[in-house]
Each structure stands twice: as structure tokens, then as C-alpha cells.
Amino acid sequence: MTVGGGGSGAAATGRPWGLTLLLIIALAVFVVLGIWQVRRMYWKHDLIARVNVRVRAVPASLPTDARLVSARPGDLDYLRVKLSGVYVASQSARVRAATDLGTGYWAMTVMRLDDGRTIWVNRGFVPEGVTENQVWTGVPAGAVRVIGLLRSTEPGGSLLQSNRPQDDRWYSRDVAALTRAKQAGRTVPVFVDAQQEEGRSFRGSKPVPGLTVVRFADNHLSYALTWFAMAALSGAAIGLVWRQARPKSS
């Protein structure tokens, strides 16, 4: 009787409660991550649909400063707008770029708008070897009209390199830093990627506009399926552990 009682107690205490708890936690985490990715997928699809409508829409006026400041990040990205004003050629900069046309620079120039505001305009792509002086001399004089896409500032630099304002080396279109470096006064907190540019007089070679990449990574479904598969494996592992721990009948 004593031996039998000891065997029953060992079997009871041998249940893999700790491992089971870890697997249950893992299962729950994987399910939550899967659901989160599904929600992200719907959000991304909605974003793509909205952007596709924006980039093909009739150009609108630049939103008010209050709207630009209060907008959440990305809310106004790729809104198609129309600008009219004059460029300030001396307040130009080259920002490193890699495009379908090769590596080179975005030609960024400040525009003083007819409504009194000031905004940075990405006039387009210029190839490797174009100097900053050539960017300046290529800026049209007099009244200019631009149709383009509103973009959020890109602070700091690229993934691999930080902006170096002191050396006039730019790897991202950081509106605030460009404004300080070029002493442009007060500019709106966004910039515009030019699609079309019309002016009375162009000097030198004109940057190639309209190269904005409107593409979004959409891998959320595959990520969601991966997390749900991991959850299923965790559930299967729980069953396997408990089957192996079941006392064998003599």
C-alpha cells in the first residue's frame, strides 16, 4: 500500500505545469501578435487606397499652417497640391538620392509662396556630378507654378548616414535642419515633391520631377499567418507534453 501511494504521488507531481504555463503564455502572445498584424493589414490597405486617390486627385491648395501642424504623422502625405510663388535660388541644397535613373541628388529649393508662406520644394532629380552651384543656376527666375505631392519631413538622415549640416551633406530631406542651415527663416513643416514645374525662365539643366516612389510594404498577411502558425504549434506542443507525461498503465 505504501509503495502504491508513493507511485501515485510521483505521477501527480510529475505533471509538466511549468512548461505548460510557458507554452500557454507563448500561445497567447502569438495569437495577439497575429491579430495585431491582421489589424495592421487592414490599416495598410486603407492607407494605400487613400494614397492612390490622393496622387491622382485634382491639385488642392496647400493646407493652412494650423492644419499642417495639427495633422498626425502621415495624415497629409501624398496630398496633391498646387503652389505658386518665386524660388530663392541661394537657399538650395542637394540631398542624396537613389532613383530609377541612378544615384544622384534631390534638388531642394525654398519657394516663397504668393500667400506669404515659405516652403521647401524638391524640384526633382539631378545626376551624380551636378554641383550645388549648378543647382542654384538651374533655378528658374520669376513666378513659378508647381504641382506636387505633400511629404512629411525626414529628420536626422538616412538609415546608414546622418545629415551633416556643417559640411552641407544631406542624406534626408530634413525640413527643420535645412531651414536652419540655409537661414531660410520660417518654413512650413513639410515639403513638396514636384510633379510639374512651370516658369518663365529656366537656366541650365532642369531636374527631373515626378520620381516620387509611392510604394508601401504590405507583408502583414504573411506575418499574421506566421504568428498563427506558431500559436498552433504551441497548442500542439501542450498536447504532446501532456500525452508524454500521462502515467503509463501497468
Rank of each mutant, 00 (worst) to 15 (best):
R39K: 09
A236R: 14
A49F: 07
R50G: 09
L150F: 00
D114E: 02
R67Y: 12
T153D: 10
W227F: 12
V95P: 00
L68P: 05
V51T: 09
T118G: 00
R145F: 01
L233K: 06
R180Q: 10
F216T: 09
S250E: 06
R180L: 08
I35E: 12
A229T: 14
D75K: 13
P63L: 07
E198C: 03
T179E: 03
Q196L: 07
N52K: 05
F228N: 02
D46K: 06
R15D: 04
L27G: 15
G138K: 01
T64M: 09
V31T: 12
S61T: 13
D168T: 08
G138A: 04
G7L: 09
G199L: 05
L79I: 12
Q161T: 14
A231K: 05
S201A: 12
T20P: 01
L27Y: 14
S201V: 14
V95A: 08
L150Y: 00
L22C: 07
V121Y: 00
T187H: 08
T179C: 09
R145A: 15
V88I: 04
A98D: 12
K44D: 10
S158D: 06
I238V: 14
T153S: 11
H45P: 09
N122P: 07
A224K: 05
Y78L: 13
R50Y: 01
S162P: 03
E154G: 08
G157I: 02
L160C: 03
